[in-house]
């Protein structure tokens, strides 16, 4: 029994296994986060702009109230991380598709990564450490409901 040898091919040749398959996991992430984000974003828009008194209800106290509720805390945190990484991965894809020169590609990918990390850190910091009535603040600078405490 003799089988015909596989034709000459640059890809079919035995390749060494290289760590994590980022393209595959990136693709899965986009699908997964996309579905979750549809729920998160439309839920966010509905509650902020439509439910109750609608868009007129939004002020400092409204946001402060939402962030003190653990449900909305986790909702916002999930939305921040999923949406930012989703967007950054999308831009990485576009750069990979259209930026052919190595230097430009490096610069663009580097700036996308840097801005994503900065925005994620800042956003997470705001959500986790937010205090509407910081101790020792001037009474004129804090919202009215802080006096009631």
């Amino acid at each position: 029994m003799s089988l015909i040898e596989a034709p000459r091919s640059k890809v079919a040749s035995p390749r060494k296994k290289r760590g994590i398959n980022w393209e595959k996991w990136g693709w899965i992430y986009m699908r997964f986060s996309g579905i979750v984000l549809v729920v998160l974003i439309f839920g966010h828009l509905f509650v902020n702009l439509f439910a109750g008194r609608g868009v007129k209800a939004i002020d400092f106290a409204f946001v402060a109230g939402k962030l003190s509720d653990p449900f909305w805390f986790w909702w916002d945190l999930a939305m921040l991380w999923l949406a930012l990484i989703h967007g950054a991965n999308g831009m990485r894809t576009i750069v990979n598709d259209y930026a052919n020169r190595r230097v430009i590609r490096r610069i663009l990918l580097g700036s996308i990564a840097a801005s994503t990390i900065v925005l994620l850190t800042l956003g997470t910091l705001v959500i986790t450490t937010f205090d509407p009535c910081p101790a020792g603040a001037h009474p004129a600078d804090v919202p009215s409901f802080c006096k009631e405490r």
Binding site: M1, L3, I4, A6, P7, R8, S9, K10, V11, A12
Partner: peptide
């Protein structure tokens, strides 16, 4: 045709 070739477009079997 190169990329066509590289996906092994023929019946692959272990033996008869």
């Amino acid at each position: 045709f190169d990329s066509f070739r590289s996906v092994n477009p023929f019946l692959m079997v272990a033996g008869p």
